[in-house]
Measured scan of single mutants.
Amino acid sequence: MDGTRTSLDIEEYSDTEVQKNQVLTLEEWQDKWVNGKTAFHQEQGHQLLKKHLDTFLKGKSGLRVFFPLCGKAVEMKWFADRGHSVVGVEISELGIQEFFTEQNLSYSEEPITEIPGTKVFKSSSGNISLYCCSIFDLPRTNIGKFDMIWDRGALVAINPGDRKCYADTMFSLLGKKFQYLLCVLSYDPTKHPGPPFYVPHAEIERLFGKICNIRCLEKVDAFEERHKSWGIDCLFEKLYLLTEK
């Protein structure tokens, strides 16, 4: 054995408090879109979701699917093309516009009456609605409950000090017999300040354990050449399924 860690023996890093005071403002996230600093976007979609999607959907149609901090995630069109209703929230209007443009979807925009100064973008087909606002303002819009949440790049982007508020927001959107698919990253948080932030299993239990059954479905090596600039040499991604207790 050469000592290389595999996707099945990932350790939890003990120094989980080192990132707790890290803060990125909404304006800084918007600047990332304006300046093209969106390496977190996956042009081909998320491979773990693609692998498990049909198993999760079980042939159902007409589900309501929520994408927190959606950006221009191509997976939104995957669900819409399968007959589901997609709702996303994203602070960057540019990111939302790029989604519709890159997916060749016509759309309209209208003000969100409950949140002055914000807009919702709706596909002409009517099954994709993307709200351009802070996720913490979203419950004011009465958008209803969801059958499924796809959380990739959301919890790991939320400032650590806001995670409890974020989890409570997610709980307010969950319908009966929900499936909450959650991706988190595992790396040494003493070497990279984030975002994306390190979210250990214990944190998921703390945030969601009282209401959800929590199961880790898969762990994969997600390290890429660009991650060397973070000062790390190891990065794993974990896919969790959260269901109603």
Rank of each mutant, 00 (worst) to 15 (best):
M1L: 14
M1W: 11
T4F: 09
T4Y: 15
T4V: 12
T6A: 15
T6Y: 08
T6E: 12
T6M: 08
S7A: 02
L8G: 11
L8E: 12
D9L: 02
D9F: 10
I10T: 15
E11T: 05
E12A: 12
E12W: 10
E12I: 06
S14R: 15
S14T: 07
S14W: 07
D15V: 11
D15R: 12
V18P: 11
K20L: 13
K20Q: 15
N21T: 11
N21M: 13
N21G: 09
V23L: 13
V23T: 09
L24A: 11
L24G: 05
L24I: 15
T25N: 14
E27Q: 09
E27I: 11
E28I: 05
E28S: 08
E28P: 03
Q30F: 09
Q30I: 12
K32T: 12
K32I: 05
K32S: 09
W33R: 04
V34M: 12
V34L: 07
V34F: 14
N35S: 15
G36R: 13
A39P: 10
A39G: 11
F40S: 06
H41G: 08
H41T: 09
Q42V: 12
E43N: 02
E43Y: 07
Q44W: 07
G45W: 06
G45R: 05
G45L: 14
G45V: 11
H46A: 10
H46Y: 08
Q47L: 14
L48V: 11
K51E: 14
H52V: 06
T55G: 07
F56A: 01
F56S: 08
F56W: 09
K58V: 15
K60V: 12
S61T: 14
G62M: 13
L63R: 09
R64K: 14
V65S: 00
V65T: 02
V65L: 04
F66K: 01
L69K: 10
L69M: 12
C70Q: 04
G71W: 03
G71L: 03
K72I: 04
V74R: 10
M76A: 03
M76R: 01
F79A: 06
D81T: 10
D81Q: 09
R82C: 08
R82A: 11
R82T: 07
R82P: 00
G83A: 02
H84R: 00
S85W: 08
V86A: 05
G88P: 05
V89L: 05
E90G: 06
S92V: 03
S92Q: 02
E93F: 05
L94Y: 12
L94S: 06
E98V: 03
F100R: 00
T101H: 08
T101D: 12
T101I: 13
Q103M: 10
N104E: 10
N104L: 06
N104T: 03
N104R: 08
S106E: 11
S106H: 08
Y107L: 03
Y107W: 05
Y107V: 06
P111M: 12
P111Q: 11
E114M: 06
E114S: 13
E114Y: 08
P116G: 07
P116T: 07
P116S: 13
T118K: 10
T118S: 14
K119Q: 06
K119A: 05
F121Y: 12
K122D: 00
S125G: 07
N127V: 08
N127I: 04
I128D: 00
S129D: 07
S129A: 15
S129W: 15
L130G: 00
C132L: 06
C132G: 08
C133R: 01
C133P: 00
I135A: 04
I135Q: 01
I135D: 00
F136G: 03
F136Q: 04
L138W: 04
P139L: 11
P139H: 10
R140L: 13
R140A: 07
R140P: 05
T141F: 12
N142T: 12
N142R: 10
K145R: 06
K145S: 11
F146N: 02
M148W: 09
M148F: 11
W150Q: 01
W150P: 01
D151I: 00
D151S: 01
D151K: 00
R152E: 03
G153Y: 02
G153I: 02
A154I: 00
A154H: 01
A154V: 01
V156T: 15
A157G: 08
N159T: 04
N159M: 02
P160L: 03
G161T: 13
D162G: 06
R163W: 12
R163T: 09
K164Y: 11
K164L: 13
C165N: 11
C165G: 04
C165S: 13
Y166K: 00
A167W: 05
A167G: 08
T169S: 13
T169W: 07
T169H: 14
T169Q: 10
M170E: 00
L173T: 11
L173S: 04
L174V: 09
K176V: 14
K177G: 13
K177W: 03
F178W: 14
Q179G: 07
Y180W: 09
L181Q: 02
L182K: 00
L182Y: 01
C183V: 08
C183H: 08
L185C: 07
S186Y: 13
S186C: 11
Y187I: 07
Y187R: 04
D188T: 05
P189A: 13
T190L: 14
T190R: 14
K191M: 07
G194Q: 03
P196W: 03
P196K: 02
P196A: 08
F197H: 09
F197N: 02
Y198R: 08
Y198M: 14
Y198W: 06
P200L: 01
P200R: 15
H201V: 15
A202L: 04
A202W: 11
E203A: 09
E205T: 08
R206W: 07
R206T: 12
R206C: 04
R206A: 14
L207K: 04
F208R: 00
G209R: 08
G209T: 14
K210M: 14
K210A: 08
K210D: 11
I211V: 13
I211E: 03
C212D: 01
C212Y: 14
C212Q: 09
N213G: 12
R215E: 10
R215C: 14
C216L: 13
C216K: 15
C216P: 15
C216A: 07
L217H: 01
E218S: 02
K219P: 02
D221F: 02
D221R: 08
A222K: 10
E224A: 15
E224N: 14
R226H: 01
R226T: 05
H227P: 07
H227E: 09
H227A: 08
H227V: 13
H227R: 09
K228M: 01
K228Q: 15
S229Q: 15
S229C: 00
S229A: 15
W230P: 04
W230E: 06
W230Y: 05
G231T: 03
I232H: 01
I232M: 05
I232T: 05
I232G: 05
D233W: 11
D233I: 09
C234D: 15
F236T: 06
F236S: 14
E237M: 08
L239R: 05
Y240L: 12
L241G: 03
T243L: 09
K245R: 08
